[in-house]
């Protein structure tokens, strides 16, 4: 197994380099750089500018700059942000935590609802409840996330049930530990619902169709004929076989934990990576953008890896082909 993980890791490293290199090139392609804004400022002398160019190595060819950045990035030294004048890692740490908190909450909402709802719909295809679930999933699949966010904001302002914007209340520091948890959850609930319901819609559809396919297969017929209870047939046999595609999707979701909710974050005013990256890209804050993408790429690799490992653990066919086959 360790060998298999190492092999997959080895295969994923070119992806990491590819993503970061491509983003480096794209950012450098943009006309001008961050220093242009400083050049406009008469208070900053030519000398300071030249000094900054030297420090950041901006006078060197792109490839040299990239490799310098990469070598430092491997050591998790992500450089300095031009606009905030502080280490990128310090700058994005809190933001990453906020974003992770939001995406994990919304992921939990989506997955914990999608699997039971999908199974219920699949057990009685075309029944009233199935039709209702399908209608729900189709509506929310087509409802743009940002529009849903606007609607929820409207709802929040009108009813006052949800806070509008921010990750915690202004008086957060003076709260007890328990109040802090409640406050955090209260603030995350609105964006998490928006994102969670959005991905729930797609997931339910998939759970339903995979389960229907599994329930029609012969081993289910056999299990029923054997006299197993419906509960065992569905949960032990059909569900287990239907899981494979979802593990791959789970991997994707882990990969997109940091970036999947960016637009909603910006709209709902959630202090996560979305707003920071938007500003960074627009002000050409090179190392800040690279830092965000680098962490994103690492999440991608972790997500892929977790999916691979889970697949190998759960599906003996894949284990045999990939893990044991690799040793031969």
């Amino acid at each position: 197994m360790i060998f298999y993980i190492l092999k997959r890791l080895y295969q994923l490293i070119p992806l990491l380099i590819g993503i970061t290199f491509l983003s480096f090139v794209i950012i450098q392609l943009a006309p001008g750089d961050y220093l242009d804004q400083l050049r406009m400022n008469p208070q900053i002398s030519e000398k300071t500018l030249n000094q900054m160019i030297k420090i950041y190595g901006l006078d060197q060819p792109i490839l040299v700059q990239y490799f310098k950045w990469l070598i430092n990035a491997i050591k998790f030294d992500l450089g300095y942000s031009f606009s905030y004048q502080m280490p990128v890692l310090d700058l994005i740490k809190d933001r990453i935590l906020n974003t992770l908190f939001l995406s994990i909450t919304s992921g939990v909402i989506a997955w914990f609802l999608a699997i039971p709802l999908g199974i219920i719909a699949a057990l009685k295809p075309n029944s009233l409840i199935d039709k209702f679930i399908q209608l729900f999933s189709f509506t929310f699949m087509s409802l743009p996330g940002f529009f849903f966010a606007f609607l929820m904001l409207f709802f929040a302002v009108k009813t006052g049930i949800f806070p509008t914007g921010g990750a915690y209340s202004p008086n957060y520091e003076s709260m007890t530990f328990f109040e802090k948890i409640v406050d955090r959850l209260w603030h995350v609930s609105l964006p998490a619902l928006v994102i969670g319901i959005g991905s729930l819609a797609g997931l339910v559809r998939l759970v339903r169709s995979t389960m229907i396919e599994q329930l029609q297969s012969e081993y289910v017929l056999f299990a029923r004929a054997k006299g197993l209870s419906e509960r065992e047939v569905v949960l032990k046999h059909a569900l287990k076989n239907a899981l494979n595609p979802f593990i791959t999707i789970l991997g994707f979701e882990i990969a997109s934990l940091l970036s999947g909710s960016a637009l909603i974050e910006i709209i709902i005013n959630w202090p996560g990576m979305g707003m920071l990256m938007l500003d960074a890209v627009l002000s050409q804050d090179l190392y800040l953008v690279m830092g965000g993408l680098y962490i994103g790429a690492i999440m991608l690799i972790i997500g892929n890896l977790i999916a691979d490992i889970l697949l190998a653990k759960l599906d003996p066919r894949i284990r045999q082909r990939e893990v044991e086959g690799a040793l031969k």
Partner: peptide, 14 residues
């Protein structure tokens, strides 16, 4: 595998 929203922003900046 690029986060598409960020890719879109970065390309817009070009």
């Amino acid at each position: 595998s690029f986060p598409s929203f960020y890719l879109m922003l970065a390309l817009r900046a070009v």
